[in-house]
């Protein structure tokens, strides 16, 4: 409601990968997200920032229909991926999630070996036709997850035995292994120490060469470091959306300014 349509023109330089129009989310009778319009560019890192409970995670989970697993959650409006409505009844959320992967706040490796963790996605989606191909995918994904050198000698040990930062990179590698087009990250560094956080941030920067990355974060510094575009959410509204530099140096909305200067949130 506060965003201006003109703003869009200013930022639409690259391809738009995903876009949301009039997106509303309800939990039972409570409205968690109000009228969000947003465009997510391809091969770009987009950061969602805002105070706790502002709806940024909820909105993120709409982008690959993870909210479908919550029975009382209802989504209205349209969200498209490459121009196709992802809430169309014909769309299978399973196929959608193969294209829009997700990494969660807490590292959640499956209680399987490192290899099987990575191979899980490719296996269920049938991406490998032979054992050798699968091995290749696992290696490639672990390399992309910047974890290969650390674990290549113990691929068949349980993934739960890794350190927190390694676990989170394992989860990222696991998400990357299914070759998604968009990667959603829900506060991926909030459970990690500063060194692990730096590693993950570096990784995100590399990932944007191949994927469009959307990251929800509590840390404004992190948003400033890794993202090219930033959206500021407040009380379920998208208050402001634009180039990261512009949001942090020259916010248009007073609430954005209050938030980044530390007066609210």
């Amino acid at each position: 409601m506060f965003d201006t349509p003109k703003r869009e023109a200013a930022v639409t330089k690259t391809d738009i990968k995903m876009s949301a129009r009039n997106c509303q989310v309800f939990y039972g009778d409570n409205q968690a997200i109000k009228d969000v319009d947003v465009d997510i560019d391809d091969k770009t890192v987009t950061a969602f920032i805002g105070p706790s409970g502002c709806g940024k995670s909820t909105f993120l989970r709409c982008l690959n229909r993870m909210n479908d697993t919550i029975p009382i959650c209802r989504v209205e409006g349209t969200i498209t991926l490459d121009g196709e409505d992802i809430y169309d009844p014909k769309v299978d959320p399973v196929q959608l999630r193969a294209k829009v992967g997700m990494v969660f706040q807490k590292p959640n490796p499956f209680p399987k070996s490192i290899y099987d963790n990575i191979a899980y996605g490719p296996r269920i989606h049938g991406l490998a036709r032979s054992r050798a191909e699968l091995d290749d995918i696992v290696e490639k994904s672990l390399r992309r997850g910047a974890l290969w050198d650390e674990v290549k000698d113990r691929l068949h040990e349980p993934g739960t035995g890794l350190s927190g930062g390694q676990q989170q990179r394992l989860c990222i590698a696991r998400a990357v292994a299914t070759e998604p087009e968009v990667l959603l990250m829900d506060e991926p560094c909030s459970a990690l120490d500063p060194i692990a956080t730096a590693q993950v941030e570096e990784l995100i920067d590399e990932l944007k060469q191949n994927f469009s990355v959307v990251i929800v974060t509590h840390s404004m510094q992190q948003a400033a470091r890794v993202s090219q575009k930033t959206a500021f959410f407040h009380l379920g509204n998208l208050v402001e959306y634009g180039e990261t530099g512009q949001i942090f140096t020259n916010p248009r909305d007073p609430r954005t300014e209050s938030y980044i200067t530390g007066r609210i949130g």
């Binding site: 299978d92 196929q95 959608l96």
Partner: peptide, 20 residues
């Protein structure tokens, strides 16, 4: 598989149909 990137979401492929 590698060409999957270009597939439309609105068509359900054979594998997904089998999985469903």
């Amino acid at each position: 598989a590698p060409a999957r990137r270009n597939r439309s979401l609105l068509e359900v492929d054979d594998r997904t149909r089998r999985r469903n």
